[in-house]
């Protein structure tokens, strides 16, 4: 794994917004993704994941703010060669054969790596002579991934790449992807709404909701910043006094018991409270259930424009 240190980070957004005719898809987004990370971009459908990825791929132009890719504007010519993008619907020419599709990559990319591309296609058991239009969804994804990996980009943007893969091919494709990341230090952003898909894969996390970033940073740090506490419910309902000095993300009451996901201000002690460390999934579920919880950015996800929350 090569240590690619890019002071500006792979992605850096500030004041980023995108408005479609039907309204704002992204608003006031600011975050930083260091180079060489495997980042999960999580959020419910319509939360702005695809818009953010399309902006990073240079397919869309921001309405407000900027999105820098390795320090350069995302629609600058130099940025294009450093980024590979697999869109959710995996656009490919249906009348091309798989071999023709790879040749397209070879003809249009100076850094093209035919061997890697062919290996990915072989790993997915897709014949080179097959017409793209005759492939199954999973096989198409495999060809799209081969295109992205053959490009030898420094950042791969994958929009729900595994949604139509069977478990075996998903494992293989993920293995190929991680091997590439291991060998070349390639950063990866994978959007998904099924976090379990990325368990053990991602080390960085972006949680989106309503066109904004709600959690950003190292997966470990985000997990470590939260506690799951269980204790007695307050008499009149509402947040018990014992939790008042912490940032409460979400509370759930069962009978006389209350379970809360909190970001502790200090040691979250208190008589009668059981404190455990939540799993990453617990944290994400907590935030997804509580759309109004305050956002959290860990230190290396902050840009100068990011309001400091944690």
């Amino acid at each position: 794994m090569t240590d690619e240190i890019d002071a500006s980070g792979a992605l850096e957004a500030s004041g980023l917004g995108k408005k479609y005719r039907r309204g704002w898809a992204l608003r006031d987004v600011a975050f930083r993704l260091p180079a060489g990370r495997i980042c999960a971009l999580v959020g419910p459908n319509g939360s702005g994941k695809s818009t953010l990825l399309s902006l990073a791929a240079g397919l869309l132009t921001p309405t407000t703010g900027t999105l820098r890719v390795f320090g350069r504007s995302s629609d600058a010519p130099g940025a294009r060669a450093r980024i590979a993008f697999v869109a959710q619907d995996k656009p490919l020419y249906p009348r091309f054969s798989v071999a023709d599709t790879l040749r397209l990559g070879r003809e249009l990319n100076p850094r093209w790596d035919q061997k890697t591309a062919e290996r990915v296609v072989a790993e997915g058991e897709v014949p080179l002579s097959a017409r793209v239009g005759s492939l199954s969804g999973g096989q198409r994804t495999c060809v799209a991934l081969a295109m992205a990996l053959g490009k030898r980009a420094d950042l791969l943007l994958l929009d729900e790449p595994m949604s139509d893969q069977d478990p075996l091919r998903r494992h293989r494709m993920m293995g190929v992807l991680m091997a590439e990341a291991a060998e070349r230090g390639t950063g990866v952003v994978i959007s998904t709404h099924v976090l379990a898909e990325l368990d053990g894969v991602c080390d960085y996390l972006l949680l989106m909701g309503g066109g904004r970033i709600r959690l950003a940073g190292e997966a470990d740090a985000i997990q470590a910043a939260h506690r799951l506490v269980t204790g007695p419910r307050a008499a009149g309902g509402g947040t018990p006094d014992a939790l008042a000095r912490h940032t409460v993300v979400e509370t759930r009451a069962t009978g006389r018991q209350l379970t809360a996901l909190i970001r502790p201000a200090d040691a979250p002690a208190g008589d009668g409270w059981i404190v455990t460390e939540p799993s990453l999934e617990d944290v994400l579920l907590g935030y997804l259930r509580a759309p109004d919880a305050p956002p959290l950015f860990t230190a290396d996800a902050r840009t100068t424009g990011t309001e400091v929350e944690a």
Binding site: A57, F85, A87, P91, L92, Y93, L108
Partner: peptide, 14 residues
């Protein structure tokens, strides 16, 4: 219409 322009636009040519 079919979105294939995005395949070409995300290669290295402008």
């Amino acid at each position: 219409e079919t979105g294939t322009h995005r395949l070409v636009w995300t290669q290295s040519v402008g």
